[in-house]
Computed example of a mutant assay.
Amino acid sequence: MELIAPTESKKSSRTYDAARTKGIILDAAEEVFAELGYSAARIDGIAKASGYNKSLIYQYFGDKLGLYTEVVKRADQIGDQITGSVITELLKNEHLITDPIAFRQFIETMTREMYGFLLEHPRYLKILFWEAAEEWKTWNQITYRPDDITQLHELAIAAKRNGILRQDFDPAMFPILVMNVITATIQSFSRYENVLGKLDSPQMRERTIEQIAKFVIYGVMEPSSL
Score class of each variant (00 low, 15 high):
Glu108Tyr: 03
Gln141His: 01
Ala172Lys: 13
Gly37Lys: 05
Ser39Gly: 04
Arg145Glu: 09
Ile4Arg: 14
Glu89Asn: 13
Glu31Trp: 13
Ala75Asp: 09
Arg123Gly: 08
Gln167Thr: 07
Asn194Asp: 14
Pro6Asn: 00
Gln167Cys: 04
Tyr68Lys: 02
Glu108Ser: 10
Asn93Cys: 11
Gln187Cys: 08
Tyr124Cys: 12
Asp63Tyr: 05
Asp80Thr: 12
Ser12Thr: 14
Ile87Phe: 01
Glu154Tyr: 02
Ala34Leu: 06
Ile176Arg: 14
Gln59Phe: 15
Thr111Phe: 04
Ala102His: 06
Tyr38Lys: 10
Val72Trp: 02
Gln167Pro: 02
Ile46Trp: 07
Leu56Lys: 08
Gln151Ile: 09
His95Ala: 15
Arg145Trp: 10
Arg145Ile: 11
Leu177Tyr: 09
Asp44Trp: 08
Arg166Tyr: 07
Gly84Pro: 00
Ala159Asn: 02
Ala132Gly: 01
Gly51Lys: 05
Gly62Asn: 02
Asp99Ser: 07
Tyr115Ile: 04
Tyr58Cys: 01
Gly116Trp: 08
Arg14Ala: 10
Asn140Pro: 00
Thr143Gly: 12
Ile127Met: 00
Lys160Met: 07
Ile82Lys: 10
Pro6Gly: 05
Gly37Thr: 07
Gln81Ser: 13
Glu135Val: 08
Ile157Trp: 02
Gly163Lys: 10
Ala75Thr: 04
Gln187Tyr: 11
Gly37Asp: 01
Phe189Gly: 05
Thr83Val: 14
Lys11Phe: 10
Glu210Cys: 12
Leu119Lys: 04
Gln77Trp: 12
Gly197Phe: 08
Leu119Phe: 00
Arg20Ala: 03
Thr109Lys: 12
Leu155Tyr: 04
Trp139Gln: 13
